[in-house]
Design a protein around this nucleic acid. Structure first.
Lengths: 239, 239
DNA sequence: AGTTGATTTTAATCTAGATTAGAATATTGT
DNA sequence: ACAATATTCTAATCTAGATTAAAATCAACT
Protein backbone atom coordinates (compact mmCIF):
# COMPACT_ATOMS: atom_id res chain seq x y z
CA UNK A 1 0.00 0.00 0.00
CA UNK A 2 2.28 2.72 -1.27
CA UNK A 3 1.43 6.25 -0.45
CA UNK A 4 1.49 8.68 -3.39
CA UNK A 5 4.16 11.32 -3.13
CA UNK A 6 3.75 14.71 -4.65
CA UNK A 7 1.35 14.16 -7.48
CA UNK A 8 1.79 10.59 -8.63
CA UNK A 9 1.64 7.20 -6.94
CA UNK A 10 4.95 5.64 -6.02
CA UNK A 11 5.82 2.56 -8.01
CA UNK A 12 8.37 0.13 -6.64
CA UNK A 13 9.39 -3.42 -7.19
CA UNK A 14 10.95 -5.11 -10.23
CA UNK A 15 9.47 -4.72 -13.69
CA UNK A 16 6.84 -2.23 -12.72
CA UNK A 17 7.31 1.11 -14.35
CA UNK A 18 4.23 3.30 -14.07
CA UNK A 19 2.38 2.85 -17.33
CA UNK A 20 0.82 5.95 -18.93
CA UNK A 21 -2.54 4.34 -18.29
CA UNK A 22 -1.83 4.22 -14.57
CA UNK A 23 -0.72 7.81 -14.47
CA UNK A 24 -3.76 8.98 -16.33
CA UNK A 25 -6.11 6.90 -14.26
CA UNK A 26 -4.71 8.47 -11.15
CA UNK A 27 -4.76 11.92 -12.70
CA UNK A 28 -8.32 11.46 -13.87
CA UNK A 29 -9.56 10.28 -10.52
CA UNK A 30 -7.81 13.09 -8.78
CA UNK A 31 -9.34 15.56 -11.16
CA UNK A 32 -12.79 14.17 -10.42
CA UNK A 33 -11.96 14.65 -6.78
CA UNK A 34 -10.93 18.26 -7.29
CA UNK A 35 -14.17 18.94 -9.08
CA UNK A 36 -16.11 17.35 -6.25
CA UNK A 37 -14.20 19.46 -3.77
CA UNK A 38 -14.78 22.63 -5.78
CA UNK A 39 -18.46 21.82 -5.89
CA UNK A 40 -18.60 21.40 -2.13
CA UNK A 41 -16.58 24.51 -1.36
CA UNK A 42 -18.77 26.62 -3.60
CA UNK A 43 -21.97 25.07 -2.31
CA UNK A 44 -21.34 24.68 1.40
CA UNK A 45 -18.56 27.16 1.98
CA UNK A 46 -15.02 26.27 2.94
CA UNK A 47 -15.46 25.79 6.65
CA UNK A 48 -18.78 24.16 5.96
CA UNK A 49 -17.36 21.30 3.96
CA UNK A 50 -15.61 18.46 5.66
CA UNK A 51 -13.50 15.91 3.87
CA UNK A 52 -16.33 13.54 4.49
CA UNK A 53 -18.60 15.74 2.39
CA UNK A 54 -16.18 15.70 -0.50
CA UNK A 55 -15.64 11.97 -0.18
CA UNK A 56 -19.38 11.33 -0.05
CA UNK A 57 -19.83 12.99 -3.44
CA UNK A 58 -17.43 10.40 -4.81
CA UNK A 59 -18.89 7.45 -2.98
CA UNK A 60 -15.75 7.23 -0.90
CA UNK A 61 -14.63 7.50 2.69
CA UNK A 62 -12.91 10.61 3.94
CA UNK A 63 -9.78 8.61 4.62
CA UNK A 64 -9.62 7.56 0.98
CA UNK A 65 -8.96 11.11 -0.09
CA UNK A 66 -5.57 10.94 1.56
CA UNK A 67 -4.51 8.60 -1.17
CA UNK A 68 -4.71 11.50 -3.58
CA UNK A 69 -3.78 14.42 -1.44
CA UNK A 70 -1.58 15.09 1.54
CA UNK A 71 -4.17 17.02 3.53
CA UNK A 72 -7.09 19.38 3.26
CA UNK A 73 -4.88 22.36 2.68
CA UNK A 74 -3.38 20.68 -0.36
CA UNK A 75 -6.84 19.83 -1.61
CA UNK A 76 -7.80 23.48 -1.56
CA UNK A 77 -4.49 24.45 -3.07
CA UNK A 78 -5.00 22.06 -5.98
CA UNK A 79 -8.50 23.35 -6.51
CA UNK A 80 -7.05 26.82 -6.83
CA UNK A 81 -4.32 25.70 -9.19
CA UNK A 82 -7.01 24.16 -11.30
CA UNK A 83 -9.09 27.33 -11.24
CA UNK A 84 -6.06 29.36 -12.26
CA UNK A 85 -5.38 26.92 -15.08
CA UNK A 86 -8.81 27.42 -16.55
CA UNK A 87 -8.27 31.16 -16.55
CA UNK A 88 -4.79 30.94 -17.97
CA UNK A 89 -5.79 28.69 -20.83
CA UNK A 90 -8.69 30.91 -21.75
CA UNK A 91 -6.45 33.94 -21.82
CA UNK A 92 -3.74 32.19 -23.81
CA UNK A 93 -6.18 31.01 -26.43
CA UNK A 94 -7.71 34.46 -26.73
CA UNK A 95 -4.33 36.09 -27.15
CA UNK A 96 -3.26 33.74 -29.90
CA UNK A 97 -6.56 33.81 -31.78
CA UNK A 98 -7.82 37.33 -31.31
CA UNK A 99 -7.22 40.39 -33.43
CA UNK A 100 -7.66 43.75 -31.69
CA UNK A 101 -7.33 44.23 -27.97
CA UNK A 102 -11.08 44.36 -27.57
CA UNK A 103 -11.49 41.22 -29.61
CA UNK A 104 -8.98 39.39 -27.47
CA UNK A 105 -10.71 40.55 -24.32
CA UNK A 106 -14.05 39.34 -25.63
CA UNK A 107 -12.65 35.98 -26.60
CA UNK A 108 -10.96 35.61 -23.26
CA UNK A 109 -14.13 36.39 -21.35
CA UNK A 110 -16.10 33.95 -23.44
CA UNK A 111 -13.58 31.19 -23.01
CA UNK A 112 -13.10 31.70 -19.30
CA UNK A 113 -16.79 31.84 -18.53
CA UNK A 114 -17.42 28.84 -20.75
CA UNK A 115 -14.74 26.92 -18.90
CA UNK A 116 -16.13 27.83 -15.51
CA UNK A 117 -19.72 26.87 -16.15
CA UNK A 118 -19.01 24.10 -18.63
CA UNK A 119 -16.96 21.00 -19.17
CA UNK A 120 -14.11 22.14 -16.94
CA UNK A 121 -16.66 21.47 -14.27
CA UNK A 122 -17.13 23.63 -11.24
CA UNK A 123 -14.19 25.86 -10.50
CA UNK A 124 -13.58 26.74 -6.86
CA UNK A 125 -14.07 30.32 -5.82
CA UNK A 126 -10.78 31.48 -4.37
CA UNK A 127 -11.85 32.90 -1.04
CA UNK A 128 -9.39 31.09 1.16
CA UNK A 129 -6.07 31.91 -0.42
CA UNK A 130 -4.88 33.52 2.81
CA UNK A 131 -5.23 30.32 4.76
CA UNK A 132 -3.04 28.33 2.43
CA UNK A 133 0.38 27.49 3.75
CA UNK A 134 2.93 30.15 2.79
CA UNK A 135 4.54 28.36 -0.15
CA UNK A 136 1.21 27.47 -1.72
CA UNK A 137 -0.21 30.87 -0.99
CA UNK A 138 2.66 32.57 -2.74
CA UNK A 139 2.37 30.31 -5.72
CA UNK A 140 -1.33 30.96 -6.15
CA UNK A 141 -0.84 34.67 -5.66
CA UNK A 142 1.85 34.62 -8.29
CA UNK A 143 -0.46 32.88 -10.76
CA UNK A 144 -3.14 35.32 -9.83
CA UNK A 145 -0.95 38.35 -10.39
CA UNK A 146 0.39 36.99 -13.63
CA UNK A 147 -3.14 36.49 -14.88
CA UNK A 148 -4.22 39.93 -13.79
CA UNK A 149 -1.23 41.52 -15.43
CA UNK A 150 -1.83 39.65 -18.66
CA UNK A 151 -5.42 40.77 -18.73
CA UNK A 152 -4.44 44.37 -18.08
CA UNK A 153 -2.06 44.08 -20.99
CA UNK A 154 -4.99 43.23 -23.23
CA UNK A 155 -6.83 46.29 -22.03
CA UNK A 156 -3.80 48.45 -22.70
CA UNK A 157 -3.42 46.92 -26.12
CA UNK A 158 -7.04 47.66 -26.88
CA UNK A 159 -6.68 51.25 -25.82
CA UNK A 160 -3.56 51.60 -27.92
CA UNK A 161 -5.18 50.17 -31.04
CA UNK A 162 -8.29 52.24 -30.50
CA UNK A 163 -10.67 49.34 -29.96
CA UNK A 164 -11.14 50.09 -26.27
CA UNK A 165 -11.96 53.52 -24.94
CA UNK A 166 -9.47 55.03 -22.49
CA UNK A 167 -10.13 53.99 -18.93
CA UNK A 168 -8.45 53.21 -15.66
CA UNK A 169 -6.91 49.88 -16.52
CA UNK A 170 -6.34 48.66 -12.99
CA UNK A 171 -9.87 49.43 -11.86
CA UNK A 172 -11.42 48.01 -14.98
CA UNK A 173 -9.47 44.84 -14.44
CA UNK A 174 -10.59 44.68 -10.85
CA UNK A 175 -14.21 45.08 -11.86
CA UNK A 176 -14.19 42.45 -14.58
CA UNK A 177 -12.15 39.93 -12.62
CA UNK A 178 -14.40 40.40 -9.62
CA UNK A 179 -17.49 39.70 -11.67
CA UNK A 180 -15.89 36.55 -13.03
CA UNK A 181 -14.57 35.36 -9.70
CA UNK A 182 -18.02 35.66 -8.21
CA UNK A 183 -19.71 33.47 -10.83
CA UNK A 184 -19.51 30.29 -8.75
CA UNK A 185 -21.58 32.02 -6.10
CA UNK A 186 -24.67 32.31 -8.23
CA UNK A 187 -24.20 29.69 -10.91
CA UNK A 188 -25.18 26.21 -9.88
CA UNK A 189 -24.56 23.89 -12.77
CA UNK A 190 -27.72 23.74 -14.84
CA UNK A 191 -26.44 22.84 -18.29
CA UNK A 192 -29.22 24.84 -19.94
CA UNK A 193 -28.50 27.94 -17.90
CA UNK A 194 -24.84 27.49 -18.72
CA UNK A 195 -25.29 28.25 -22.39
CA UNK A 196 -27.32 31.30 -21.51
CA UNK A 197 -24.58 32.53 -19.21
CA UNK A 198 -21.93 31.89 -21.82
CA UNK A 199 -23.92 33.88 -24.33
CA UNK A 200 -24.78 36.85 -22.15
CA UNK A 201 -22.15 37.30 -19.50
CA UNK A 202 -19.06 38.07 -21.59
CA UNK A 203 -21.17 40.44 -23.67
CA UNK A 204 -22.19 42.35 -20.57
CA UNK A 205 -18.73 42.51 -19.11
CA UNK A 206 -17.27 44.00 -22.24
CA UNK A 207 -20.20 46.30 -22.99
CA UNK A 208 -18.55 49.25 -21.33
CA UNK A 209 -15.20 48.80 -23.00
CA UNK A 210 -15.77 49.47 -26.67
CA UNK A 211 -14.49 52.78 -27.94
CA UNK A 212 -17.16 55.05 -29.46
CA UNK A 213 -17.95 53.83 -32.95
CA UNK A 214 -16.54 50.40 -32.21
CA UNK A 215 -19.63 49.06 -30.46
CA UNK A 216 -20.46 45.42 -30.84
CA UNK A 217 -23.36 44.36 -33.02
CA UNK A 218 -26.35 44.19 -30.67
CA UNK A 219 -28.27 41.39 -32.29
CA UNK A 220 -31.72 42.65 -31.45
CA UNK A 221 -31.40 41.87 -27.78
CA UNK A 222 -34.33 43.05 -25.70
CA UNK A 223 -34.93 43.65 -22.06
CA UNK A 224 -35.69 40.32 -20.50
CA UNK A 225 -37.64 39.93 -17.32
CA UNK A 226 -35.51 38.60 -14.45
CA UNK A 227 -36.04 35.05 -15.67
CA UNK A 228 -38.14 32.90 -13.38
CA UNK A 229 -36.25 32.21 -10.18
CA UNK A 230 -36.95 34.35 -7.10
CA UNK A 231 -34.30 37.00 -7.75
CA UNK A 232 -30.88 36.33 -6.44
CA UNK A 233 -27.15 36.95 -6.84
CA UNK A 234 -26.23 40.03 -4.92
CA UNK A 235 -24.55 41.43 -1.90
CA UNK A 236 -23.36 37.95 -1.29
CA UNK A 237 -26.13 35.80 -2.75
CA UNK A 238 -25.52 32.12 -2.51
CA UNK A 239 -26.91 28.73 -1.60
CA UNK B 1 -21.40 39.41 35.71
CA UNK B 2 -24.50 39.15 33.57
CA UNK B 3 -24.21 37.64 30.18
CA UNK B 4 -25.71 39.67 27.34
CA UNK B 5 -28.69 38.05 25.73
CA UNK B 6 -29.55 38.62 22.11
CA UNK B 7 -28.01 41.94 21.33
CA UNK B 8 -27.94 43.89 24.56
CA UNK B 9 -26.60 43.24 28.02
CA UNK B 10 -29.12 42.03 30.57
CA UNK B 11 -29.89 44.55 33.27
CA UNK B 12 -31.30 43.36 36.54
CA UNK B 13 -31.63 44.56 40.07
CA UNK B 14 -33.61 47.49 41.47
CA UNK B 15 -33.23 50.96 40.11
CA UNK B 16 -30.98 50.02 37.23
CA UNK B 17 -32.57 50.69 33.89
CA UNK B 18 -30.08 50.59 31.03
CA UNK B 19 -29.20 54.19 30.27
CA UNK B 20 -28.96 55.18 26.60
CA UNK B 21 -25.28 55.79 27.20
CA UNK B 22 -24.82 52.18 28.28
CA UNK B 23 -26.66 50.85 25.27
CA UNK B 24 -24.69 52.93 22.86
CA UNK B 25 -21.39 52.13 24.50
CA UNK B 26 -22.15 48.46 24.08
CA UNK B 27 -23.37 48.93 20.54
CA UNK B 28 -20.33 50.97 19.63
CA UNK B 29 -17.91 48.48 21.03
CA UNK B 30 -19.65 45.67 19.30
CA UNK B 31 -19.52 47.55 16.06
CA UNK B 32 -15.78 48.05 16.46
CA UNK B 33 -15.56 44.35 17.01
CA UNK B 34 -17.51 43.56 13.86
CA UNK B 35 -15.20 45.78 11.86
CA UNK B 36 -12.19 44.05 13.36
CA UNK B 37 -13.69 40.71 12.48
CA UNK B 38 -14.48 41.82 8.95
CA UNK B 39 -10.92 43.00 8.57
CA UNK B 40 -9.56 39.66 9.70
CA UNK B 41 -11.92 37.59 7.58
CA UNK B 42 -11.05 39.57 4.48
CA UNK B 43 -7.35 39.56 5.22
CA UNK B 44 -6.73 36.06 6.55
CA UNK B 45 -9.69 34.18 5.19
CA UNK B 46 -12.47 32.73 7.28
CA UNK B 47 -10.86 29.52 8.37
CA UNK B 48 -7.60 31.38 8.75
CA UNK B 49 -8.86 33.73 11.43
CA UNK B 50 -9.30 32.54 14.96
CA UNK B 51 -11.22 34.43 17.59
CA UNK B 52 -7.86 35.18 19.08
CA UNK B 53 -6.90 37.04 15.93
CA UNK B 54 -10.00 39.18 16.08
CA UNK B 55 -9.55 39.82 19.78
CA UNK B 56 -5.92 40.76 19.28
CA UNK B 57 -6.90 43.53 16.91
CA UNK B 58 -8.95 44.99 19.74
CA UNK B 59 -6.37 44.47 22.43
CA UNK B 60 -8.56 41.86 24.03
CA UNK B 61 -8.58 38.20 24.86
CA UNK B 62 -10.51 35.74 22.74
CA UNK B 63 -12.76 34.92 25.66
CA UNK B 64 -13.77 38.57 25.94
CA UNK B 65 -15.53 38.39 22.59
CA UNK B 66 -18.12 36.12 24.11
CA UNK B 67 -19.40 39.07 26.05
CA UNK B 68 -20.60 40.54 22.78
CA UNK B 69 -21.48 37.51 20.77
CA UNK B 70 -22.76 34.03 21.44
CA UNK B 71 -20.20 32.25 19.26
CA UNK B 72 -18.11 32.52 16.12
CA UNK B 73 -21.04 31.71 13.91
CA UNK B 74 -22.95 34.65 15.29
CA UNK B 75 -19.93 36.85 14.78
CA UNK B 76 -19.87 36.02 11.09
CA UNK B 77 -23.61 36.38 10.89
CA UNK B 78 -23.47 39.87 12.35
CA UNK B 79 -20.68 40.83 9.98
CA UNK B 80 -22.91 39.81 7.12
CA UNK B 81 -25.90 41.66 8.48
CA UNK B 82 -23.70 44.70 8.67
CA UNK B 83 -22.49 44.24 5.12
CA UNK B 84 -26.06 43.91 3.93
CA UNK B 85 -26.98 47.06 5.82
CA UNK B 86 -24.37 49.08 4.00
CA UNK B 87 -25.73 47.90 0.69
CA UNK B 88 -29.33 48.47 1.65
CA UNK B 89 -28.74 52.01 2.85
CA UNK B 90 -26.86 52.92 -0.28
CA UNK B 91 -29.64 51.61 -2.44
CA UNK B 92 -32.35 53.31 -0.41
CA UNK B 93 -30.60 56.66 -0.59
CA UNK B 94 -30.09 56.32 -4.32
CA UNK B 95 -33.72 55.47 -4.91
CA UNK B 96 -34.98 58.44 -2.97
CA UNK B 97 -32.52 60.94 -4.41
CA UNK B 98 -32.01 59.79 -7.98
CA UNK B 99 -33.93 60.76 -11.08
CA UNK B 100 -33.78 58.31 -13.97
CA UNK B 101 -33.07 54.62 -13.56
CA UNK B 102 -29.51 55.08 -14.72
CA UNK B 103 -29.02 57.97 -12.34
CA UNK B 104 -30.26 55.89 -9.44
CA UNK B 105 -27.99 53.05 -10.39
CA UNK B 106 -25.01 55.38 -10.54
CA UNK B 107 -25.82 56.91 -7.18
CA UNK B 108 -26.28 53.52 -5.65
CA UNK B 109 -22.96 52.25 -6.94
CA UNK B 110 -21.20 55.35 -5.69
CA UNK B 111 -22.77 55.14 -2.26
CA UNK B 112 -22.20 51.43 -1.83
CA UNK B 113 -18.61 51.53 -2.92
CA UNK B 114 -17.99 54.59 -0.77
CA UNK B 115 -19.46 52.80 2.20
CA UNK B 116 -17.37 49.69 1.66
CA UNK B 117 -14.03 51.40 1.33
CA UNK B 118 -14.78 54.33 3.60
CA UNK B 119 -16.14 55.25 6.99
CA UNK B 120 -18.36 52.18 7.26
CA UNK B 121 -15.06 50.48 7.66
CA UNK B 122 -14.20 47.16 6.15
CA UNK B 123 -17.20 45.14 5.10
CA UNK B 124 -16.86 41.38 5.23
CA UNK B 125 -16.93 39.51 1.97
CA UNK B 126 -19.81 37.06 2.16
CA UNK B 127 -18.14 33.82 1.22
CA UNK B 128 -19.34 31.71 4.10
CA UNK B 129 -23.08 32.19 3.99
CA UNK B 130 -23.57 28.46 3.52
CA UNK B 131 -21.91 27.62 6.79
CA UNK B 132 -24.20 29.83 8.84
CA UNK B 133 -26.75 28.05 10.92
CA UNK B 134 -30.03 27.58 8.99
CA UNK B 135 -31.98 30.45 10.55
CA UNK B 136 -29.17 32.93 10.06
CA UNK B 137 -28.43 31.64 6.61
CA UNK B 138 -32.00 32.10 5.53
CA UNK B 139 -32.10 35.59 6.93
CA UNK B 140 -28.97 36.67 5.12
CA UNK B 141 -30.12 35.04 1.92
CA UNK B 142 -33.40 36.89 2.23
CA UNK B 143 -31.60 40.21 2.64
CA UNK B 144 -29.42 39.29 -0.24
CA UNK B 145 -32.30 38.44 -2.52
CA UNK B 146 -34.20 41.53 -1.52
CA UNK B 147 -31.21 43.65 -2.38
CA UNK B 148 -30.67 41.92 -5.69
CA UNK B 149 -34.30 42.30 -6.61
CA UNK B 150 -34.28 45.98 -5.71
CA UNK B 151 -31.25 46.55 -7.85
CA UNK B 152 -32.79 44.72 -10.76
CA UNK B 153 -35.80 46.94 -10.39
CA UNK B 154 -33.57 49.95 -10.93
CA UNK B 155 -32.22 48.39 -14.09
CA UNK B 156 -35.73 47.70 -15.33
CA UNK B 157 -36.75 51.23 -14.50
CA UNK B 158 -33.82 52.58 -16.45
CA UNK B 159 -34.65 50.49 -19.47
CA UNK B 160 -38.25 51.61 -19.27
CA UNK B 161 -37.38 55.30 -19.07
CA UNK B 162 -34.80 54.94 -21.82
CA UNK B 163 -31.76 55.82 -19.73
CA UNK B 164 -30.38 52.27 -19.81
CA UNK B 165 -30.02 50.27 -22.97
CA UNK B 166 -31.94 46.98 -23.12
CA UNK B 167 -30.01 44.11 -21.62
CA UNK B 168 -30.41 40.89 -19.70
CA UNK B 169 -31.31 42.27 -16.31
CA UNK B 170 -30.50 39.21 -14.29
CA UNK B 171 -27.06 38.76 -15.82
CA UNK B 172 -26.23 42.42 -15.62
CA UNK B 173 -27.15 42.35 -11.97
CA UNK B 174 -24.99 39.32 -11.40
CA UNK B 175 -22.04 40.99 -13.06
CA UNK B 176 -22.26 44.25 -11.18
CA UNK B 177 -22.98 42.67 -7.83
CA UNK B 178 -20.11 40.27 -8.32
CA UNK B 179 -17.70 43.08 -9.01
CA UNK B 180 -18.86 44.87 -5.88
CA UNK B 181 -18.81 41.81 -3.69
CA UNK B 182 -15.24 41.13 -4.69
CA UNK B 183 -13.94 44.57 -3.70
CA UNK B 184 -12.77 43.49 -0.24
CA UNK B 185 -10.47 41.01 -1.94
CA UNK B 186 -8.31 43.65 -3.58
CA UNK B 187 -8.94 46.78 -1.55
CA UNK B 188 -6.92 47.01 1.61
CA UNK B 189 -7.82 50.22 3.37
CA UNK B 190 -5.50 52.93 2.11
CA UNK B 191 -7.51 56.09 2.63
CA UNK B 192 -5.89 57.71 -0.42
CA UNK B 193 -6.66 54.77 -2.66
CA UNK B 194 -10.19 54.81 -1.32
CA UNK B 195 -11.05 58.12 -2.92
CA UNK B 196 -9.62 56.90 -6.19
CA UNK B 197 -11.73 53.78 -6.04
CA UNK B 198 -14.83 55.76 -5.20
CA UNK B 199 -14.20 58.01 -8.16
CA UNK B 200 -13.44 55.34 -10.73
CA UNK B 201 -15.20 52.13 -9.80
CA UNK B 202 -18.85 53.14 -10.03
CA UNK B 203 -18.07 54.89 -13.29
CA UNK B 204 -16.63 51.71 -14.74
CA UNK B 205 -19.45 49.50 -13.54
CA UNK B 206 -22.09 51.67 -15.15
CA UNK B 207 -20.13 52.38 -18.32
CA UNK B 208 -21.85 49.63 -20.24
CA UNK B 209 -25.35 50.53 -19.14
CA UNK B 210 -26.09 53.89 -20.72
CA UNK B 211 -28.44 53.85 -23.67
CA UNK B 212 -26.95 55.24 -26.89
CA UNK B 213 -26.99 59.01 -26.71
CA UNK B 214 -27.28 58.96 -22.94
CA UNK B 215 -23.59 58.43 -22.27
CA UNK B 216 -22.10 59.99 -19.18
CA UNK B 217 -19.87 63.01 -19.54
CA UNK B 218 -16.37 61.57 -19.79
CA UNK B 219 -14.41 64.30 -18.09
CA UNK B 220 -11.27 63.93 -20.15
CA UNK B 221 -10.26 60.67 -18.56
CA UNK B 222 -7.18 59.09 -20.09
CA UNK B 223 -5.66 55.66 -20.09
CA UNK B 224 -3.72 55.31 -16.90
CA UNK B 225 -0.86 52.93 -16.47
CA UNK B 226 -1.65 50.14 -13.96
CA UNK B 227 -0.69 52.40 -11.08
CA UNK B 228 2.44 51.40 -9.23
CA UNK B 229 1.81 48.17 -7.35
CA UNK B 230 2.91 44.85 -8.89
CA UNK B 231 -0.32 44.12 -10.74
CA UNK B 232 -2.93 42.23 -8.85
CA UNK B 233 -6.64 41.56 -8.37
CA UNK B 234 -7.60 38.70 -10.55
CA UNK B 235 -8.64 35.10 -10.70
CA UNK B 236 -8.71 35.28 -6.99
CA UNK B 237 -6.15 37.93 -6.12
CA UNK B 238 -5.82 38.56 -2.42
CA UNK B 239 -3.47 39.06 0.49
C1' DA C 1 -14.48 54.22 50.11
C1' DG C 2 -18.10 50.89 49.26
C1' DT C 3 -21.65 48.62 46.44
C1' DT C 4 -23.22 47.20 42.03
C1' DG C 5 -23.07 45.78 37.82
C1' DA C 6 -19.99 45.97 33.36
C1' DT C 7 -16.03 44.19 31.20
C1' DT C 8 -12.13 41.39 30.77
C1' DT C 9 -9.04 37.79 32.18
C1' DT C 10 -7.07 33.24 33.47
C1' DA C 11 -7.21 28.65 33.22
C1' DA C 12 -9.55 24.72 31.98
C1' DT C 13 -12.63 21.87 29.04
C1' DC C 14 -14.69 20.12 24.90
C1' DT C 15 -15.21 18.77 20.26
C1' DA C 16 -15.73 18.42 15.39
C1' DG C 17 -12.94 17.08 11.99
C1' DA C 18 -8.54 16.26 10.26
C1' DT C 19 -5.23 12.88 10.24
C1' DT C 20 -2.97 8.12 10.65
C1' DA C 21 -2.16 2.94 10.97
C1' DG C 22 -3.06 -1.08 9.42
C1' DA C 23 -6.20 -4.30 7.50
C1' DA C 24 -9.22 -5.46 3.68
C1' DT C 25 -10.55 -5.48 -1.07
C1' DA C 26 -9.89 -4.53 -6.00
C1' DT C 27 -7.45 -4.58 -10.14
C1' DT C 28 -4.03 -5.81 -13.40
C1' DG C 29 -0.74 -8.69 -15.50
C1' DT C 30 1.21 -13.39 -16.03
C1' DA D 1 -5.21 -19.02 -9.84
C1' DC D 2 -1.39 -16.14 -8.23
C1' DA D 3 1.46 -12.37 -7.39
C1' DA D 4 1.96 -7.65 -6.85
C1' DT D 5 0.48 -3.28 -6.63
C1' DA D 6 -3.48 0.04 -6.33
C1' DT D 7 -7.29 1.64 -3.88
C1' DT D 8 -10.35 1.90 -0.19
C1' DC D 9 -12.00 0.95 4.42
C1' DT D 10 -12.30 0.53 9.64
C1' DA D 11 -11.10 2.10 13.78
C1' DA D 12 -8.41 4.87 16.41
C1' DT D 13 -5.80 9.17 17.51
C1' DC D 14 -4.77 14.01 17.67
C1' DT D 15 -5.37 18.78 17.84
C1' DA D 16 -6.25 23.54 16.98
C1' DG D 17 -9.55 26.43 18.38
C1' DA D 18 -13.95 27.22 20.08
C1' DT D 19 -16.27 27.41 24.22
C1' DT D 20 -17.09 27.83 29.40
C1' DA D 21 -16.57 28.81 34.55
C1' DA D 22 -15.16 31.52 37.81
C1' DA D 23 -12.44 35.02 39.40
C1' DA D 24 -10.29 39.65 38.86
C1' DT D 25 -10.59 44.46 37.46
C1' DC D 26 -12.97 48.57 36.18
C1' DA D 27 -16.29 52.51 36.12
C1' DA D 28 -20.08 54.84 37.87
C1' DC D 29 -22.87 55.99 41.42
C1' DT D 30 -24.04 57.07 46.51
Amino acid sequence: MPRPVNDRPVRIGPGSVPTPADESRFALKRDRMLRAAAHCFNEKGYSGTSLKDVAARLGLTDAALYYYVRNKEELVYLCYVRAAEVGREALAAAVSEGSTGLDKVRRYLGAHVAGMVGERGPVAIMSEIPSLEPAHREEILALSRRHGAAFEKLLAEGIADGSIRPCDIRMTGNAIMGAINWIPKWFHGDAEQASHVVREFPEILSAGLAAPGKEHRDDGRRARAPADSPADSTVGRDT
